[in-house]
Design a protein around this nucleic acid. Structure first.
Lengths: 195, 195
DNA sequence: ACTACAATCTTTACATCGTCAAGATTGGTA
DNA sequence: TACCAATCTTGACGATGTAAAGATTGTAGT
């Protein structure tokens, strides 16, 4: 859409895109403003014309990644037969997104300034969590769950999916099995009367 | 046990302890070797006599925190009536540990060099995961689960607990409810036939 | 008791980092 | 055409992790 806002090129967008590239290659740890500026062929302070600090840049990069994430989540429920199937494929999409880009997890949840508010009734932002919530609540409706259990079950579901993503993207954790089946194949929660 | 290994004091241990203090106060982001050295009253390169790099220091700090973590987990199952109660209070201890020290989560799982191997049959180290596994398997025995479901259910349980800890320690996530009840009060996993 | 040695700590130096201030470049606009 | 404001560069600052060289000092060997 908006291109070449100025004479030296599309720096703002290039910073975001090459920044995310850099992230995928080197990790959030080794990311640096100066290296990124060099990779974009500009001086080390040029980014300050577009972002007031490196944190604001990270935030913009985070929003970009969050957008990709959302696209994946949205696409995953496109052809779901019912609301339960929608939640299932949503969870799998959540997990496979980070499985494909392990470095995005750390970045998205710890460096992007993203926020999730479980208390807020109306989540205004175009955010992954809102979408997850709506999809889950539709399933809860279909299952006829008591309304007062909605929030707790939403968080339980989200925690499980998020926990799987957190573990599979952790370099210190090794598991040769299929992470996306953890959600499907567990039987223990159905067995126990109370934890 | 081993104290004052040399003439200027117990620097190695002091670095670890004050380092963890610093962490609790300022967060893993603002941690710095030089500030820590200053806080210990030594020059900024003195730590290099005990740790070859800042990452090795973090690793040692991680092991120290992991030890505290283990103490908490061990204590939590001390008076459990049966194996199911043990798993429940273990999960709650896991969650409340990070609830009390939110900054430890990031540190322990991303900066300490800790490793968890779900594939390994015999986990040799004195590690939280091994303990969690043994406790969970004891419950699976009591419940008469099929052996081939053990690993998958272990990971499902761990993911849920870990996911809750991950969310509650995330500064971008707000939830005024009680995180430690998420594990207990969910009903959705018991309801669904298959995800 | 004296001498070496090795562990510990200090000083100095360097490259890299994020950021700030001042000035140069340049496209659009009046 | 002249100005302006957005964009980019140059140079500098303090903070960071770390390498190299030298000083200090407890301990071991004679």
């Amino acid at each position: 859409m908006e291109k070449k806002p100025y004479h030296h090129g599309d720096l703002r967008n290039k910073l975001i895109e090459r920044g995310i590239e850099m992230l995928s290659e080197e990790g959030a740890q080794d990311f640096s403003l100066r290296k990124l500026a060099a990779k974009c062929g500009v001086s080390h302070t040029a980014p300050y014309s577009h972002f007031e600090s490196v944190d604001k840049l990270r935030q913009a990069m985070g929003e970009h990644v969050a957008h990709q994430f959302m696209e994946k989540l949205r696409g995953s429920v496109q052809h779901a037969e019912d609301s339960t199937a929608a939640v299932t494929s949503l969870g799998k999409a959540y997990i496979s997104f980070f499985s494909e880009n392990p470095l995005y997890f750390q970045f998205l949840f710890y460096h992007s300034g993203l926020s999730i508010d479980f208390d807020e009734k109306t989540q205004s932002d175009y955010q992954p969590f809102t979408f997850f919530k709506e999809t889950a609540y539709r399933m809860f409706d279909a299952l006829g769950l008591p309304k007062e259990d909605y929030l707790n079950n939403l968080i339980a579901l989200w925690s499980m999916v998020h926990g799987i993503a957190s573990l599979l993207t952790n370099k210190g954790v090794r598991y040769s099995g299929d992470w996306s089946e953890v959600l499907s194949n567990n039987t223990i929660f159905a067995r126990r009367k109370e934890f």
